[in-house]
Design a protein around this nucleic acid. Structure first.
Length: 436
RNA sequence: GUGGGUGUAGCUCAGUUGGUUAGAGCGCCAGGUUGUGGCCCUGGAGGUCGUGGGUUCGACUCCCAUCACUCACCCCA
């Protein structure tokens, strides 16, 4: 060991014990997405930098200071994706999905990169589960997208999340509103923090979700977007709300929800859990009716969300929701003597092909040490194969949970174990039923 | 980018007003006689005390710098 190399700042290894939890939530996500008619798309983790500049917006924090941008050997500017929508949109256009029956419903699961100062619930590489619906401008689509997130949370056993909903208008009404905001804030510039003074001309909408006490007071009296929406946006907004109510989704209208990406139009929403430290947003998304055109496709509306998997897992852990533990093997074969070792080695082949998770000693340990090891790795059953057993064509099998022993004919081991394990899991179910 | 906190064995942490061979618990490895886990007992491996410099007869301990981790601001998933 010369110089200890650690993971890059803000990244982490997902180790055994943790990775099972990832598999579990990813499994729920994939099943759910399929049930809602979404198909998986896998796009590159890096794209041409220009895609994000055009898509996400030049003035956003993400593009201004958070992108991992580099040049490849031919001098092309590439960027590790700082969000998931742009790549999906690019693929939609590149493969002419717009010429297919609409809507197009994609989902993705993968890493996202942002150069930020890491802290609780925030990383430089994190993972998102995201969905996108292209082609539909109907309010029912916005509601369905939100419903996917809400349904996912409820399937994972999560109850105390809050859906915050807002409508930031289309370019037409947003222009009006922008002017109204500037007109409102300009006389009170002195009361705003330095950041917000900056935002005033560039992006006054952002002042609305400033956390500074002084700014919040000023914001309290600011005109609300809702009163500046055009008739179409208003209708759309109430439509979304009607569908959400029809599906029994609880939500709060919050005019402070603005979102940090420029491409949003009309519907924006966040799903938050207060309990993650400073980071409360687990899922955020909205409608982006001009994005596809901006990136070079035909005018096509879209809605989607991104959900942070790390934050989701943190939330599940904090709220005590079910998460799988590291599982040990079904069977450990402890052997005594070379002949037994060889017999076990060969037998494992069949056991594994039958779907059993089965292992044996690779360390040359004594029988006792093998048993200790089997116990430590949480093996469900241990089969003991020594010279005596080999000679008699039998094997001793021990259930580790209670130490119960059985003698089984060596060729019957697989069948016997399968039957036992089935009986075990039936018992577990009964226990669960009783506790209900 | 800015501020606060923390860096001692694989992990969680002790380490007295600076004093000699830096400790514990857990974990790991091996044993506790003939072939049987969890409990108990014994032994062992494992640390340039984050790194570099300074003060001092002497630094894990004090000072400076640096790096890393962490929390927060900003922003977001």
């Amino acid at each position: 060991m010369v110089v200890k190399i650690q993971v890059p700042r803000g990244t982490q290894d997902i180790l055994p014990g943790q990775v099972e939890k990832w598999h579990y939530v990813e499994g729920v996500m994939r099943r759910l997405a399929a049930e809602y008619g979404f198909q998986e798309i896998r796009t590159p983790v890096f794209e041409h930098t220009e895609l994000f500049q055009r898509g996400v917006g030049e003035t956003t924090d993400i593009v201004e200071k958070e992108m991992y941008t580099f040049e490849d050997k031919k001098g092309r500017s590439l960027t590790l994706r700082p969000e998931g929508t742009a790549g999906a949109v690019r693929a939609f256009i590149e493969h002419s999905y717009f010429a297919q029956p609409q809507p197009t419903k994609f989902y993705y699961i993968g890493p996202i990169f942002r150069y930020e100062a890491p802290q609780a619930g925030r990383y430089r590489q994190h993972h998102q589960f995201g969905i996108e619906v292209f082609g539909s401008a109907e309010p029912i689509t916005d509601a369905e997208v939100i419903l996917v997130a809400v349904d996912l949370f409820s399937r994972l056993g999560l109850a105390d999340l809050t859906v915050k909903l807002n409508n930031i208008g289309c370019p037409k009404c947003r222009k009006d509103y922008r002017e109204a905001l500037i007109a409102y804030f300009r006389p009170q510039v002195e009361a705003l923090c330095a950041d917000c003074r900056n935002r005033l001309e560039r992006n006054p909408l952002r002042i609305l979700d400033c956390k500074q006490e002084s700014c919040r007071e000023v914001v309290a009296g600011a005109p609300e977007i809702t009163s500046h929406l055009c008739a179409e946006c208003q209708e759309h907004f109430s439509g979304v709300q009607r569908y959400l109510e029809a599906a029994g989704v609880k939500y709060e209208v919050d005019s402070g929800i603005v979102r940090g990406l420029d491409y949003y139009t009309r519907t924006v929403f966040e799903i938050i859990y207060t309990g993650l430290g400073a980071q409360s947003t687990v899922c955020g998304g909205g409608r982006y009716d001009n994005l596809i055109e901006t990136v070079g496709g035909p005018p096509t509306p879209g809605v989607g969300f991104g959900m942070g998997i790390e934050r989701l897992l943190l939330t599940l852990e904090k709220t005590g929701c079910y998460l799988p533990e590291k599982a040990g093997p079904d069977l450990y074969i402890a052997t005594l003597g070379q002949a037994a070792k060889e017999a076990a080695f060969a037998a494992l082949l069949d056991l594994r092909r039958a779907g059993l998770r089965a292992v044996t000693d690779l360390m040359g340990r004594s029988l006792k040490a093998q048993l200790k090891y089997a116990n430590k790795i949480n093996a469900r059953y241990v089969a003991i194969l020594g010279e005596n057993e080999l000679a008699q064509g039998r094997v001793q099998v021990k259930r580790m949970a209670d130490g119960q022993d059985a003698e089984v004919a060596w060729p019957d081991l697989l069948a016997w174990l399968k039957a036992q394990m089935q009986a075990d899991s039936r018992k577990e179910e009964e226990v669960q039923d009783d506790s209900r």
